[in-house]
């Protein structure tokens, strides 16, 4: 039971690869940390694993099978900037339930209040929006969660709140999490295993 990326290479130009022969494997129920510098291609790898980017070489599979291109993707990606992840013309309750009806349990554990539902995204702070983004990504069919610097823009208390909630939920639902961050302290605190991006990506950066 694992999400696998095998021999993935990606580049906008042929002679200038961002990812070269990267392989990574994430088991269900695992919390895997990926540490790397900004601009090193971590985000691109995340996008490839979650099916956002299709022009790459290599193979992404779940339990050996290709990830379906249509329908709900069992691999969900959450970004660093929650304000970009929500349509500014939608109300919060529509944003939350876009993929599936998110259960009350998840709302409770994320501390999402009912009176936020009728608000517009610009009325909420980054921390509150990120809770919505995460709750939305944790629909019943989600098996793997890719968290690309999801608390980098948040204060320490909100960061601790969010990670404690996410870790509880993924443990209960046996979801695999890839924690991508440049913060070693955070990764060491919450991850079972740690991978250094520069060790798996065979590209030299200046």
């Amino acid at each position: 039971m694992s999400l696998k990326g095998e021999n993935i290479s990606f580049g906008y130009k042929k002679n200038n690869l961002i990812l070269n022969n990267v392989s990574i494997s994430l088991d269900r129920g695992d919390v895997l940390g990926l540490i790397g510098d900004s601009g090193s291609g971590k985000s691109t790898l995340c996008k490839i694993l979650a099916g956002y980017e299709n022009n790459y070489q290599g193979k992404v599979s779940i339990d050996g099978k290709e990830v379906p291109k249509k329908g709900y993707n069992p691999v969900q990606l959450v970004f660093q900037h929650p304000e970009k992840s929500v349509n500014p013309k939608w109300k919060m309750k529509d944003i939350l339930n876009e993929g599936s009806n998110i259960s009350q349990d998840i709302l409770d554990s994320f501390g999402i209040k009912k009176n936020w539902f009728n608000r517009w995204p610009n009325e909420l702070s980054g921390g509150e929006l990120q809770r919505f983004s995460l709750a939305r990504a944790l629909g019943p069919e989600t098996r793997y969660l890719i968290a690309d610097e999801i608390t980098t823009m948040l204060d320490a208390i909100t960061q601790a709140q969010i990670w404690n909630m996410v870790l509880d939920i993924v443990k209960e639902r046996n979801i695999g999490v890839l924690v991508v961050s440049h913060e070693k302290n955070l990764i060491e605190k919450i991850c079972h295993k740690v991978v250094y991006f520069k060790d798996i990506n065979n590209v030299k950066h200046y």
């Binding site: 979650a50 099916g51 956002y52 249509k70 329908g71 709900y72 993707n73 691999v75 969900q76 990606l77 970004f79 900037h81 970009k84 992840s85 929500v86 349509n87 013309k89 939608w90 876009e98 993929g99 599936s100 939305r136 990504a137 629909g139």
Partner: peptide, 26 residues
């Protein structure tokens, strides 16, 4: 190019659904 459009696709929404629900209001 917006993230929320990609997310919508990943949540299983069709092109037509995204065009009318996400893009048209803008």
């Amino acid at each position: 190019t917006q993230d929320y459009i990609h997310i919508s696709r990943n949540l299983g929404k069709s092109k037509w659904w995204i065009a009318t629900k996400h893009i048209l209001p803008h």
